[in-house]
Design a binder for these strands. Structure first.
Lengths: 210, 210
DNA sequence: CGTATTTCCTAGTGGTCACTACAAAAATCA
DNA sequence: TGATTTTTGTAGTGACCACTAGGAAATACG
């Protein structure tokens, strides 16, 4: 759409698109999709309504871009853990620990935008989009766990589906608690407890990560 | 306010207040406080707006009554379990099992009204009221667990605070999952897993409940 | 019957919602 | 400079929001 090469022809934009988007992320994160009005957004982003609409489209497409950028800037710790850690158990443990920190970081609204921003929303489209994202997490966890069962890292009788869903329950419950005022230490204690249900590896040479 | 004794003087009410309230519960439960408009409510309750306002006050006081009645009709299983079960562990296990059933009951909206109905709400008052309710659960769990530590039912080194919060996380995560489409069986499997973190009793004669 | 009382329906109230028409402003290009 | 292009701020749009005034309707009392 807008190419950065050479000078633009018309009047230059008076705001930085990226920082305006960041402000929009914080606004939606704090109050959710529905409860954040376009007037709230223009105030938070420091631009007029016509500028918002010309730069980001309508409210819904701005929100979609917000969710994408949120995933990159604040939600990528899950993907990183799943890629970098050697086992599903280690990955989940790291995810829960980083979630405890991230969800209670005073630098931004508490909890997870994807979990809370569109609960009880009049736009079914927006609600469904975030629901699909949340359910995709569970599927990713499950396939990661199945991979560890295949290698013998986890016992053959491990219920991958239940373990994955339990992980999702813990993450989403932690996010809710963070919004309700739980501290980082309290969430870390919950993460500790939650990890206790993971079965021990069957291979005696398997890494232990305790 | 309205006494049931003897006949009323004026024109009789053309709707049953209790069933209208029940319809309001379902509407708020389905879509939350903010996203349920008064027009939605009058449609669901089958009455005109002036009747709604004269019978229930404004939208917020109707919602407060909805939350109270919801607690009695759909949320009392937690109180019952805490009263009737001999140990905190048994109570929590029963709560999780009944939550799995209740949160996925096709007869009404999924999940818990108190957890979801006012997340990301423009009315701070309503949001705070429900937040206080949720946080009260954790406190009740914790004191119940401390009581069991005192009797020796649970080990002296049990982290009552963390265990109570973990229980809250599980319940709230299960409610979120129920809204996202998890089945009763899936939630029951999560409840099974979650109970595995409970420490064994120290008193050898203590009931076991497995 | 008439009167008092309460509820009902109609038709609004002002306010906020997401969104935009329009023209001045600010840049590049000739 | 003047023409072109894009962004800007102003000032709205109709739609929906929670809520209500006012009078007709339906009951009980005397």
């Amino acid at each position: 759409m807008v190419t950065k090469e050479s000078k633009q022809r018309g009047r230059p934009r008076s705001f930085d698109r990226a920082t305006a988007l960041e402000k929009a992320i914080l606004a939606f994160w704090e109050n959710g999709y529905e409860a954040t009005s376009v007037a709230d957004l223009t105030r938070a982003m420091g631009i007029g309504a016509p500028s918002l609409y010309s730069a980001f489209g309508d409210k819904q497409s701005l929100f979609e871009e917000v969710v994408r950028e949120y995933g990159v800037r604040y939600g990528s710790f899950t993907d990183r853990a799943l890629e970098e850690e050697p086992t599903a158990r280690a990955a989940v443990e790291r995810i829960l620990r980083e979630a405890a920190v991230e969800y209670t970081d005073p630098a931004h609204p508490h909890g997870c935008l994807v979990i809370h921003a569109a609960t009880n929303c009049t736009s079914r489209e927006v609600e469904e989009s975030l629901r699909a994202r949340r359910n995709a997490w569970i599927t990713v966890f499950e396939s990661r766990i199945r991979a560890d069962i295949a290698t013998g890292e986890l016992p053959a009788d491990t219920d991958a589906s239940a373990l994955a869903r339990h992980t999702g329950v813990i993450i989403q419950g932690m996010s809710q608690q963070a919004r309700d005022g739980a501290t980082r230490q309290q969430l870390e204690a919950v993460a500790d407890l939650a990890m206790a249900i993971w079965p021990r590896p069957t291979r005696p040479d398997a890494p232990n990560h305790t």
